[in-house]
């Protein structure tokens, strides 16, 4: 079976979620080709995808693709699927991967499933498990078309190093004006930070922290843990924190190894965004806060005392 994997990069490196997508494809078995777009990632970085199971990487080193142009990306990936006779396209769920894969699925007539949480079951037909109801349930679905596209959720596959290197080939597709119909005029992006959707540890703060000026201690704790920072919806609604940190039903859905919630009550809509975390720690002064029911570890107390103490204890334990 021939599998194509769409990989995304940021700050010159392949994203961890995309490495997971390569590992997922490798675990499916078959011949894995990756495709990377833009000239802001170089060949040596792409060769490393061999270590996770890709034999070849198609690189479209066109500067116009350094930005995620949804239509142009879709045209290229659909053509690459055809050229590499790929039966399956694998990619990570992301703000770019999702809209792109939707368009590709129509172009190539593929069955498409997003939020895939496990490897496919191919014992009878081609079936996958996907998360639904914002993590509150799963659905097992069969992909009935000959071509298939799987947009995978974080942690759908374990990253295994194989020691291989991939050959990088230049690849190009003729693009028309319509591929660049949407013009990106500016990008505002945090650099050097751990990104929330990819983080293994997340420290989130809620309305209990009283104001944006109190986030210093949250950031310190996050820094000590190498964690990303998140927040509840009212916190981003009030502009205490940027919108891309908003976790929950209507925000980012995270699946870290560890989620630490500080001064968040644990409303069902917040829990919907964190319920696929491996471990949850809740710090709240109200012993009746609903979040404790969803937690693995809990501390009842004042965040303003506990958070600095926790940072201190982590430092001491190093």
């Amino acid at each position: 079976m021939s599998i194509l994997v769409f990989v995304e990069s940021a700050e010159g490196r392949v994203k961890k979620t995309s490495i997971e997508a390569v590992a997922y494809a490798a675990a499916m078995g078959g011949d894995v080709t990756a495709i990377a777009l833009g000239n802001d990632v170089d060949s040596s970085e792409l060769e490393k995808l061999g270590n996770y199971g890709a034999s070849k990487v198609l690189h479209v080193d066109d500067e116009r693709l350094n930005q995620g142009v949804i239509q142009a990306y879709s045209s290229i990936i659909a053509k690459a699927m055809e050229d590499s006779s790929a039966e399956v396209l694998v990619l990570a769920n992301s703000s770019l991967g999702n809209p792109v894969s939707a368009r590709v699925s129509v172009k190539v007539g593929a069955s498409l499933v997003s939020n895939v949480t496990d490897l496919p079951d191919t014992s009878a037909g081609f079936k996958v498990k996907r998360s639904i109801y914002t993590g509150k349930a799963f659905a097992n679905v069969e992909l009935t078309k000959e071509k298939k596209i799987l947009a995978i959720k974080k942690n759908a596959a374990e990253i295994k190093e194989t020691g291989g290197t991939a050959t990088v080939e230049k690849y190009s597709v003729d693009l028309g004006d319509s591929d660049f119909g949407a013009k990106i005029t500016k990008t505002d992006k945090a650099t050097g930070e751990v990104l929330l959707p990819e983080a293994e540890i997340v420290v989130s703060g809620g309305r209990g922290l009283k104001g944006p000026e109190n986030w210093g201690m949250v950031e310190e704790l996050a820094k000590e843990l190498g964690a990303a920072t998140g927040c509840s919806k009212p916190v981003s609604d009030m502009d205490w924190r940027p919108h891309h940190e908003h976790v929950g039903q209507t925000g980012v859905k995270v699946s870290p190894q560890l989620y630490i919630a500080v001064g968040i009550s644990g409303a069902i809509q917040h829990l919907a965004g964190v319920n696929s975390s491996k471990y949850i720690v809740v710090i709240n002064k109200d012993p009746e806060a609903p979040f404790f029911k969803a937690a693995d570890y809990g501390i009842v107390g004042d965040a303003f005392e506990i958070v600095p103490k926790l940072t201190e204890a982590l430092r001491a334990a190093k």
Binding site: A10, Q67, G68, S94, S95, L96, A182, K183, I184, T185, K186, T187, D188, K189, A190, E193, L195, L196, P197, E198, P242, H243, H244
Partner: peptide, 10 residues
């Protein structure tokens, strides 16, 4: 919205 920020488009 993109991971870690935003992108402006026309």
């Amino acid at each position: 919205e993109i991971e870690g920020g935003k992108e402006y488009l026309e």
